[in-house]
Design a protein around this nucleic acid. Structure first.
Length: 749
DNA sequence: CGGGTCATGGTTTTT
DNA sequence: CCATGACCCG
């Protein structure tokens, strides 16, 4: 009697095939985490492998934490020495120890997206880049893409050829790396890149880790990028005991450099690999699974899998098209209330999933009004909030004033009368003496033309120095409180008295709480240790399992999670799949990635799945008209509940609820006047419709149309104007044009 | 220097 | 719509 007998056959096979490379193709909900944790337990208990010889790599801290926890439940002792960490945390740990061997300092700081952006800004300024023409974001994206492919600045420059833009990028890339080095900082991508570089450059270090990690497991393997693959390749290079788990159908991070060929070509890199498919789903009902299978079947070039479940058919799916996003949110709130009060669900059993973070707002408002506890995951990361970053930069400066960015951020927060001009002079001085910004501040008196700002700088430096002198004498939390006091940061917020200021103060309290618990829990608490822990935290990591609230998040964040009751909201062409993917030059590919995202969304649901959308949606202050998402159309109608419901009798016969046929503006005027859905209690005619009736359009966003002069193109946007639609079309030859529908006479093709 | 006003443009997804 | 940036004036 052991815990391995509870596994199904392929799961057991995956657990017990410990030697050599293994590729586990694990469909959604097929128990892959279970396999990984049992595999670790099996290695320890049955194979006598030492826990510290096992490494499990995940993408999020939450996943890592869960895995650690579950291994702990299986294994009597030693579970805590299994190396379970995210890619980034793994690399930081390696680099903190050995990065000096490739010419960096081991006490580097980690730059987040925000820091990268401000660094990039100064670089563009220094290089006199025209940021109107070349956006900082564009440079950062190019650099990140290069790093994900392990292309360094030199190689990038060589490959630029006579491509002018690429040459610019190469120039910026080089400067950017120099600046990072000067600031003793690494960005997220560098953590991986430098680890690979280190392992390639130093045979001793490579050998050390190869001998240490005899068994390596990688979760969510489909989302690894080339750099991450190389890292694994190196670490597993000697013993090749590599077990990767993934699902090509759930690869949704191509935009971030994920290389789907890592999973598709695994057997090429490891010809001796054992391939195991996990096809039994334990999570969802057959109806939900059928819906998912039908949607994903529209993708090409995937590894064939047939998910099945023994869970039974379950309830049918629910679909509603509403008039507005407002009504959509209303429905979700009411439905959640019903699920909780009448069907015995908990709030935590419900999740609202959407494509873009912007959609959360509507739901948030409704949930507040409906008294439903909720939590929004994503959007602005806790540690990216202004007040939090400000205070972290104080800590950074006190800890290690080598980070110019941190010092510059706080030097005038709160206002000390040190303005941009002064900062510019100090920067110039620092550059000419080749010293750090903070060093230059210390010598403020020597800086020419700095005038009376020198005394203000002096007092800032004194403030920092006095804090620093207290390090080690008082606790971190006391130090933190002292920062709040002496800088007057909280006092300023108190004076403000707004709702927003209150929220900020609460966040500061939360940060203090985290500092306190870090100090209490860490074996050897250091300021850098805290800053590092905090740098690698993603918002999804803060989702606690024992709390009871409805969760709202993007489909991307939802990967790896499951909920009994799921709402897939905003299922509209143009929103999901997004315009970007529809009009993209590689639309075919991009839509497939969106479809995988839809697949991920559907398969999050265990018992109930409600799919909703709205005809009209406010996007950036404009009213957009969208049709039902093509992904909804890909779900067979019979999987949806019939609309007719006893509680909500329909006053008039309307279109079938299942999303078949014309749901768009296409079918003449009736589409506008039909009741949007049975669940929408009153139909409110859109404004402007009363008097001058517009002709409904025969096309909608995403459609191909022909213009008499401009030729063919794709509709990217339809905005409702006063008496007409303003249609934006991306023409194949003529470029993007905005025009009024009544004049343009566009024909759908 | 700092605060205010006006203009612009941007969102798809994040470790 | 909202956040950020440019510009202007006290």
């Amino acid at each position: 009697m052991n815990h391995f007998s509870t596994l199904n056959e392929p799961q057991q096979e995956a657990v017990m095939h410990t030697e050599g490379p293994v590729l586990i193709l694990a469909g959604a909900g097929s128990g892959k985490t279970r396999v990984l944790t049992h595999r670790a337990a099996y290695l320890i208990e049955e194979k006598g492998v030492k826990p510290y010889q096992i490494m499990a790599i995940t993408f999020t801290n939450k996943a890592a934490g869960e895995m650690r926890e579950r291994i702990h439940q299986l294994v009597e002792y030693g579970a805590e020495s299994v190396w379970v960490a995210t890619f980034h945390a793994t690399c930081v740990r390696i680099l903190r120890r050995f990065i000096d061997r490739i010419g960096f300092e081991t006490n580097f700081t980690i730059y987040d997206a925000d820091d990268q952006k401000s660094l990039m800004k100064t670089i563009c300024k220094n290089l006199k880049m025209d940021t109107k023409l070349y956006k900082e974001k564009m440079f950062l994206a190019a650099i990140s893409a290069a790093k994900n492919e392990l292309i360094g600045p030199e190689e990038f420059a060589l490959s630029a050829g006579d491509d002018f833009v690429k040459q610019k990028q190469a120039q910026v890339y080089k400067e950017y790396q120099n600046a990072l080095k000067r600031n003793n900082a690494q960005d997220f991508d560098d953590l991986i890149v430098h680890t690979v570089r280190l392992l390639r450059a130093d045979a001793q270090v490579l050998e050390y880790y190869q001998e240490r990690f005899l068994y390596i497991m990688v979760d969510e393997y489909q989302d690894t990028n080339t750099a991450q693959f190389q890292l694994i390749w190196l670490l597993a290079g000697k013993y090749r005991n590599l077990c990767v788990v993934g699902d090509d159908d759930q690869s949704i991070y191509k935009f971030r450099g994920a290389n789907i060929f890592n999973i598709l070509n695994f057997e090429k890199y490891f010809p001796e690999a054992k391939v195991i498919k996990l096809e039994q789903n334990y999570r969802s009902t057959q109806n939900i699974l059928d819906a998912a299978n039908h949607v994903i079947a529209n993708n090409h070039g995937r590894k064939q899998k047939k998910l099945w479940t023994a869970n039974g058919e379950g309830d049918k799916l629910v679909f509603h098209q509403f008039l507005t996003g407002f009504e959509e949110a209303d429905f979700v709130a009411k439905d959640i209330t019903e699920k909780v009060y009448k069907q015995g669900f908990q709030y935590r059993d419900c999740a609202v999933l959407y494509r873009t973070n912007a959609q959360s707002r509507l739901f948030e408002e409704k949930l507040i009004v409906s008294n439903i506890p909720y939590k929004i995951i994503g959007g602005v990361n806790f540690y990216a909030r202004k007040e939090i970053k400000d205070l972290l930069c104080y800590l950074k400066t006190i800890d290690n004033a080598r980070d110019d960015l941190a010092v510059q951020r706080i030097i005038n927060i709160p206002k000390r009368g040190i303005g941009a001009a002064t900062i510019g002079r100090v920067q110039a001085y620092a550059a000419s003496c080749d010293i750090s910004f903070y060093e230059a501040l210390k010598r403020a008196e020597e800086i020419p033309s700095i005038g009376k700002a020198a005394s203000k700088i002096r007092s800032f430096v004194l403030l920092i120095q006095s804090m620093r002198s207290k390090l080690g004498l008082i606790s971190f939390s006391d130090l933190f409180r002292e920062i709040l006091d002496t800088t007057g940061y909280v006092a300023e917020l108190e004076a403000e008295g707004t709702e927003e200021a209150k929220a900020r103060m609460e966040n500061i309290d939360e940060l203090l709480g985290k500092l306190v618990s870090y100090e209490a829990e860490a074996e050897e608490p250091t300021l850098s240790g805290f800053l590092e822990e905090v740098a690698l935290v993603a918002d999804i990591d803060t989702l606690e399992n024992d709390s009871n609230y409805v969760v709202l998040m993007t489909l991307h964040s939802a990967k790896g999670l499951e909920f009994p009751n799921v709402y897939l909201a905003g299922m509209e062409d143009g929103l999901f799949p997004s315009y970007m993917s529809i009009v993209s030059e590689t639309a075919a590919e991009d839509i497939e990635e969106e479809r995988r995202l839809a697949y991920v969304g559907i398969t999050r649901a265990m018992k109930h799945l409600a799919v909703t959308c709205a005809r009209e949606r406010m996007v950036r202050g404009n009213l957009q008209l969208n049709r039902v998402s093509r992904f909804v159309q890909e779900i067979p109608a019979e999987l949806f509940q019939k609309a007719a419901s006893a509680e909500k009798p329909k006053p008039e016969a309307s279109k079938p609820e299942a999303p078949r046929g014309r749901q768009t503006l296409g079918k003449g005027r009736e589409a506008f006047h039909a009741k949007p859905t049975a669940a929408t209690d009153t139909y409110r005619a859109p404004k402007n419709f009363g008097t001058a009736q517009k002709e409904p359009l025969e096309y909608s966003a995403g459609d191909r149309v022909r213009h008499i002069k401009f030729g063919e193109g794709t509709v990217t946007q339809i905005v409702e104007g006063g008496r007409d639609y303003e249609v934006t079309v991306d023409f194949d030859t003529a470029g993007i044009k905005k025009m009024f529908a009544s004049f343009a006479k566009l024909k759908k093709v």
